[in-house]
Write a protein that binds this DNA or RNA. Structure first.
Length: 817
RNA sequence: GCUGGGGUGGCGAAACUGGCAAACGCAAGGGACUUAAAAUCCCUUGGGCGCAAGCCCUUGCGGGUUCGAUCCCCGCCCCCAGCACCA
């Protein structure tokens, strides 16, 4: 069909090099942030620049986001698509330790490599606004941000448990603890208590929750909002006082209706009243249990086997409902950080309490009875899911439905001053302290007389000193403490000898505000520029992995809220639209270094070209679900591009004559424009590409090379294959970038076929199809069906019971036997 | 255990949230072109029965609702991801 002249062949390497150079030269990807019309902030989660470089999973995510940005640009927006590097953190630090290279040397090297790969991939990145969180010009403002929270009263210090590896003698992040042991050496982890900085994110729990349902502020993937809702974990319940020799013990419960069944009480081992309530006889056993708990470590305690352990501390408490004395125990399944750190145990109706009561032979009382049960029906297990339950063994509340007994009991307890309704959240305050080296030092100075003093703004950044021995050691404090000349400073307030905070902040603080900095990288006198922020935020589209559904996305929202309340930001929700992308799997498993199935993009780009690689990634499965990466898949999209290349070469040489032919393809053409546009809007990239392939096939089938259609094809291909489209656009005789042209419009009336092919079913089974004019009446279609022998064969001599006709869709004749 | 997402040809997948199951692509087979191979082009390709027109079966399994179910309901099984004693 097409004659192949060597100089007319599609050569991706040449085309891509040419256009990358031209984009650079013409500043194609650098929007005017102060004047551009219809601003559209197209954001993707910035990568951690690992030594291995980009892998195809990153390419998939970035390409999908880039396709969306390019599409928005073609629809007339000024699109800002920045890229940066999330380069601080334990990840980088551990890798640097492993290689024996200082992270300050390693990271810039990795960034150079990442930037090369990202450019090669053909992203529409505005590199004028690149940032790295490790750059003092960036973390100066991360430290400033900490001070904003400090001034707002949202930062505080308290003692908290950390994971401690006694072998490596270092603090571990929760994710470095695998099944209760250190991920590196396998030694069981212990818990230690250190003073740490926290942010009061729990103050915002209700707003963080409420905005999730506010469609005017947030249009997010449902999976992400659900994950956030669960993470915040709001529980409605009651706080109830149980009297004891050491004063009232408060418990939190979501099931006040079961209070008459509370036969014992359990305190967290760390509960402040434990010592007072311990009877002399039990002191030894209690001390032993507390030792064992501490040795377990915080993660081990939560993750380890679920076998419940505990000790009777000998003290007594009074159940306020029954007035009876009940024993008080401690057990590590009760957590100090949730509720009040104490529970009323209702073994009859709670699985954990039941297991505990059975093991330690504590009394079990039934206080709820389901249908057909009475107060005496024996319990073989905890009855937690009774349908239509009513109260039994519950004094004056007997017989009340469990569904409303809770409120009644809380009201009664409130009247007696023994309790009140209460809301609890699973969400904890955000611990931002890291006893590590590779992060922004927390800008606080401790003075013997002034206490903690924030570093004055003029002294920011507190530079992270370049030290060789950056490894954590057995002191349990950051390596920074070992550097006298850095550590010892005069107090900014009184000038007396003082010392710096030695913890660095969590990487999630770096990433909680980076979208603001992208807009403002050229200003070194402010964290962000208000005019720019007003113009470009909230972010129009944010695309990233759902592994950040809770931490990063929740912290970013929290930071925005605090700043909004201080009048420093015009919005409280930073991301107008968020979509979670899927993940690339290889041979049925998620790509990971440990499985050894990580694929790097370079070889594929070298062999097929970036455009084919991009097309393949977008075609292999739905963007929001991901898919399986297979080398063989690459040839399909490449063949498609080759054919489009030829079509462009032969444009105008193949013109259609014949009205019918023209009409047949015109409908397809309009349908394709509609499908591709909607596909891009919904991130259904795989079906959008399929639609383009269909149009190409249809055009080739009738030997059509209409210029208008070829033009549209090239424009619609541009988001996926940008260099290729630019080259084709130029070959079609245009002097400007294809991205400065307008997205094709379609005529809705022309997306509809003139005739409809109606499947004719008999009793639900398709027996034939009839051609009728579009919009034909039931009468016409039935008549046509009646003339069709392959239909009449099944209807002959039978009673027609019912006719189901869906216009232009289907006819179903229901006949008797 | 809980939450979310899945299970459709040899493979990746599609299907207007009830209306022709398998679009598009890969792989495979056959043919054309070629000295040959590659590339390209044309045809076939869910399974079964049949010379054939055609018929029967088929969306993880078992039930249900419906004229009609990949889609809705009930009960299971399996895979992936996240959370994990939250009272």
């Amino acid at each position: 069909m097409s004659e192949h002249h060597p100089d007319h062949e599609y050569r991706p390497d040449a085309v891509e090099a040419k256009w990358q150079a031209l984009w650079n030269e013409r500043h194609t990807n650098e929007p005017d942030l102060d004047r551009g019309a219809r601003p559209f902030y197209n954001l993707m989660m910035f990568p951690y620049p690992s030594a291995e470089g980009l892998h195809v999973g990153n390419c998939f995510a970035f390409t999908g986001a880039d396709v969306y940005g390019r599409f928005q640009r073609l629809r007339g927006h000024t699109v800002f698509e920045p890229m940066g590097f999330d380069a601080f953190g334990i990840h980088s630090e551990n890798f640097a330790i492993k290689l024996g290279i200082h992270p300050a040397q390693l990271i810039p090297r990795n960034i150079v490599n990442f930037r090369r790969q990202l450019t090669r991939l053909g992203g529409m990145f505005d590199w004028r606004h690149v940032l790295s969180t490790t750059d003092p010009a960036y973390y100066k403002w991360t430290q400033w941000l900490f001070l904003q929270l400090y001034q707002a009263g949202k930062a505080y210090k308290k003692k908290a448990a950390v994971n401690w590896c006694p072998h490596d003698k270092t603090v571990l992040a929760n994710e470095q603890v695998i099944n209760g042991s250190c991920e590196r050496c396998g030694t069981p982890v212990e818990q230690r208590f250190l003073e740490q900085w926290f942010f009061r994110i729990t103050d915002y729990a209700d707003r963080l929750l409420a905005n999730l349902d506010d469609a005017t502020k947030m249009d997010w993937s449902a999976s992400t909002t659900i994950a956030q809702r669960n993470w915040i974990g709001k529980s409605q319940g009651a706080e109830i006082e149980f009297a004891s020799a050491a004063g009232p013990i408060r418990v939190f419960t979501t099931r006040p209706d079961t209070i008459f069944g509370a036969t014992f009480m359990v305190l967290a081992p760390e509960h402040p009243l434990v010592a007072q309530l311990t009877s002399p006889a039990q002191r030894g056993a209690v001390a032993e249990y507390l030792r064992a708990t501490q040795a377990k470590g915080i993660v081990a305690r939560k993750v380890g086997d679920k076998e419940k352990t505990g000790v009777d501390i000998g003290g007594k408490a009074v159940n306020p409902a029954t007035g009876t004395e009940i024993p008080v125990w401690i057990a590590d399944y009760v957590l100090m950080e949730y509720g009040t750190g104490a529970i009323m145990a209702v073994p009859g109706h709670d699985e954990r309490d039941y297991a505990f009561a059975t093991k330690y032979r504590l009394p079990i009382v039934r206080v709820l009875a389901g249908a057909g049960e009475s107060a005496e029906t024996p319990l073989a297990e905890a009855a937690t899911d009774l349908a239509d339950a009513h109260l039994v063994n519950s004094g004056t509340f007997d017989g009340r439905p469990a569904s409303d007994a809770g409120t009644a009991i809380v009201a009664w307890l409130e009247g007696e001053k023994l309790g009140r309704g209460m809301v609890q959240y699973r969400l904890h305050d955000w611990c931002i302290s890291r006893q590590r080296y590779w992060g922004p030092p927390i800008p606080i100075i401790y003075c013997g007389s002034c206490g903690p003093v924030p570093v004055p703004e003029k002294d920011l950044p507190v530079l992270l000193p370049e030290i060789d021995d950056f490894r954590p050691d057995d002191s349990g404090i950051s390596p920074l403490a070992r550097h006298k000349e850095w550590y010892e400073v005069p107090c900014p307030t009184c000038g007396a000898p003082a010392h710096r905070e030695t913890d660095v902040s969590d990487t999630f603080l770096d990433s909680a505000w980076y979208p603001l900095r992208y807009l403002s990288t050229e200003f070194d006198d402010r964290a962000w520029d208000d005019a720019r922020v007003a113009r470009w935020t909230p972010v129009a589209s944010y695309i990233g992995g759902n592994e950040h559904a809770v931490l990063h996305l929740l912290y970013s929202r929290f930071i925005a809220m605090v700043l909004h309340d201080r009048g420093q930001l015009p919005f409280e929700e930073p991301f107008r639209k968020f979509r979670a992308h899927g993940h690339i799997v290889k041979d049925g498993a998620k790509m990971s270094k440990s499985k050894g199935n990580v694929v790097v993009p370079d070889q594929y780009i070298a062999r097929w070209g970036a455009d084919t690689f991009r097309m393949y990634l977008m075609f292999l499965g739905p963007f929001e679900e991901g898919g399986d990466f297979r080398d063989e898949g690459m040839s399909g999209p490449r063949r498609f591009l080759d054919k489009v290349w030829d079509l462009v070469a032969e444009c105008d040489r193949r013109t259609l004559s014949g009205v019918e032919l023209q009409q047949a393809i015109v409908v397809k053409w309009n349908q394709t424009k509609k499908k591709v546009t909607e596909g891009l809007e919904n991130l259904s990239y795989n079906t959008a590409i399929a639609a383009l392939m269909e149009l190409l096939n249809a055009m080739r089938a009738v030997n059509c090379g209409e210029r208008k259609m070829v033009k549209d094809m090239v424009i619609m291909l541009a988001p996926f294959a940008p260099h290729f489209a630019e080259e084709c656009w130029e070959r079609l005789g245009h002097q400007t970038s294809v991205f400065d042209t307008a997205w094709p419009e379609w005529d809705e009336a022309l997306t509809i076929e003139q005739t409809a092919e109606i499947p004719v079913q008999v009793n639900g089974k398709t027996r034939s199809r009839v051609q009728v004019p579009r919009g034909a009446s039931e009468k016409v279609v039935v008549a046509a069906a009646r003339r069709d022998p392959s239909v009449t064969r099944f209807t002959e001599g039978k009673d027609l019971i019912k006719v189901v006709y869906v216009k232009d869709r289907l006819l179903n004749l229901v006949v008797g036997p």
